[in-house]
């Protein structure tokens, strides 16, 4: 039986290989030739727009006002996917805290919590705790930079949130955040829900035009609405309509969500 299945694996791999090769060599425009007429290279000289991506490359910047086209696809053209995906992360966070609930309750968060600086088994010296405190501030600011400049430089809500969550991991290791697990989890869970509600709230605010529409783009510059001309530009912070707000909401949700997972797993895995 195993051998038969191994042979079918080889068959699947062969099919994948033949199929993908027949697809098109890497770098050619998408799809089989007779569907996409011209073969132009430079971005400006593709005459007619054949696929969704050509449209994004050509009009994405002016339509959504953001320099980073990937962010414009993530937070504007396919914002519904990102909403669904933020729900996936929210589900993972709540199910992990649900599944570990009995394990942590049985361990009793208060008593077995490692006390303040200096009591980590093996005694974390002050250098480590103070150093990690400084580093914590740097990581958080870098994370916020990534989140806020999502629509200008590569980055955005997810990457910035993940960087900030690594700061929480740093605090956990240097035993600066080990008191009173339930209270920290409640606060994080509150802010995570707040971030998500902000995200879907912006979607609902735009319901006048349509759900999750970028109604702030190309509006008045005070409200992230500065219009952008096609082509390279130094990048303006107030330019991409709802993109920075959605990126901020996702950054908040990812940061607090991943911190909940880290805190839960840290306290579940403590002194077996």
């Amino acid at each position: 039986m195993r051998l038969a299945s191994f042979l079918s694996l080889v068959l699947i791999a062969a099919f994948l290989f033949v199929g993908i090769l027949r697809l098109h060599p890497v770098g050619e425009p998408l799809g089989n030739p007779d569907v996409f007429k011209d073969r132009g290279d430079a971005i400006t000289d593709i005459k007619n727009v054949d696929t969704m991506d050509d449209y994004y490359l050509r009009n994405g910047q002016t339509e959504t006002g953001s320099n980073n086209l990937v962010a414009s696809v993530v937070f504007d053209y396919r914002a519904f996917d990102t909403l669904g995906e933020a729900t996936v992360l929210f589900i993972v966070v709540s199910s992990i805290s649900m599944l570990f609930f009995t394990m942590i309750k049985r361990k009793g968060p208060e008593t077995s919590g490692v006390s303040r600086i200096g009591e980590f088994p093996g005694g974390v010296s002050r250098v480590i705790t103070f150093g990690s405190f400084l580093l914590y501030i740097l990581i958080i600011t870098f994370g916020i930079y990534l989140v806020v400049h999502g629509h200008l430089s590569p980055g955005g809500g997810f990457q910035g949130g993940a960087v900030m969550a690594s700061a929480t991991a740093l605090l956990l290791i240097s035993s600066l955040m080990t008191r009173n697990v339930q209270k920290t989890k409640k606060i994080f869970s509150f802010f995570e829900s707040l971030g998500l509600t902000l995200f879907i709230g912006i979607g609902f605010v735009g319901i006048g035009v349509s759900f999750l529409s970028n109604f702030l783009a190309n509006g008045n510059p005070l409200l992230f609405g500065k219009a952008i001309a096609f082509g390279p530009n130094p990048g303006y912070l107030v330019s991409a309509g709802t993109l920075p707000l959605l990126s901020l909401a996702i950054g908040m949700e990812v940061f607090f969500g991943l911190s909940i997972i880290l805190v839960t797993m840290y306290h579940a895995a403590k002194d077996e």
């Binding site: 039986m1 195993r2 038969a4 299945s5 042979l7 079918s8 694996l9 068959l11 699947i12």
Partner: peptide, 16 residues
Amino acid sequence: NDYMVWLFLSIGVVLL
């Protein structure tokens, strides 16, 4: 592992 074996077998058969 048997579950996965049966999935890959059925994909192989339909691919044939």
